[in-house]
């Protein structure tokens, strides 16, 4: 299978994602510069973390108009996989591929530390290698990670099983204290109705090998690779 790593001006986690996909997973990888207009045969497109276009106006607002977004929209509409990490999640909400919005953290501070998230859905191509209710320890690094949507959208996401990751404590309890940024209902990551587009604020690509002291993020990449493995 082939991963396509999008590089927007201001992306800064593109090489981390590339490293995991290529070296750890052993997949084919292409990079996709923001001005390009095709995905070069990518099966799974990753929009990495960073500060695309300086996060001017709003995080993700200007990235929406990058030429590479048009083929990504078509890829997603055809059922192709798209993973947005951190700034990539913000971009996917701005583009309209995922519901809701990511606002300034409740306490207004940039947070850079490990958090725990619980796997709420194991029937997406991104989490099928993980068991339901597994707790992962993943790093976050964001100033705008406060997930917001109106109540009817939140209810729909819950009832359709589109809340994929929720902030929790080390034991998997979803508590107010374990919510780092004020996100509605402790939401850390969601998918679309088709379950082929996923966005999350934590960074699985920064913790996908034991050498770095934590490989809790690896399962997400393994799940993606497995969903393309011959049966």
């Amino acid at each position: 299978m082939r991963f396509g790593i999008v590089i927007l001006p201001g992306s800064n986690c593109d090489h981390d994602a590339l490293h995991v996909a290529e070296t750890i997973i052993g997949a084919d990888v292409v990079t996709l510069w923001h001005k390009e207009t095709d995905l070069k045969g990518s099966d799974c497109v990753i929009i990495p973390g960073g500060f695309a276009y300086g996060d001017y106006l709003r995080a993700g607002a200007l990235a929406k108009f990058a030429p590479i977004m048009e083929p990504i929209r078509r890829h997603a509409a055809g059922g192709g996989l798209v993973l947005g990490i951190c700034n990539g999640f913000q971009v996917l909400t701005e583009v309209g591929l995922l519901a809701g919005a990511l606002m300034r953290n409740e306490h207004l501070r940039f947070i850079c530390r490990d958090v725990h998230v619980r796997i709420e859905q194991d029937d997406t191509p991104f989490t099928s290698a993980l068991s339901l209710n597994t707790v992962l320890r993943l790093p976050i690094a964001h100033g705008e990670g406060n997930y917001v949507a109106d109540d009817s959208t939140l209810d729909r996401l819950e009832s359709e099983g589109q809340v994929v990751f929720r902030y929790c404590d080390a034991e998997g309890r979803v508590t107010r204290e374990s919510n780092p940024n004020g996100s509605s209902r402790n939401i850390a990551g969601i998918c679309n109705a088709g379950r082929n587009v996923l966005g999350l604020m934590p960074h699985p690509e920064r913790c996908a090998e034991a050498l770095l002291g934590n490989d809790d993020g690896l399962g997400i990449f393994q799940a993606i690779a497995r969903s393309f493995a011959p049966a």
């Binding site: 607002a61 701005e94 606002m103 917001v148 949507a149």
Partner: peptide, 8 residues
């Protein structure tokens, strides 16, 4: 299309 995010 740009200046506001009408979700919020």
């Amino acid at each position: 299309r740009l200046l506001a995010n009408t979700v919020v």
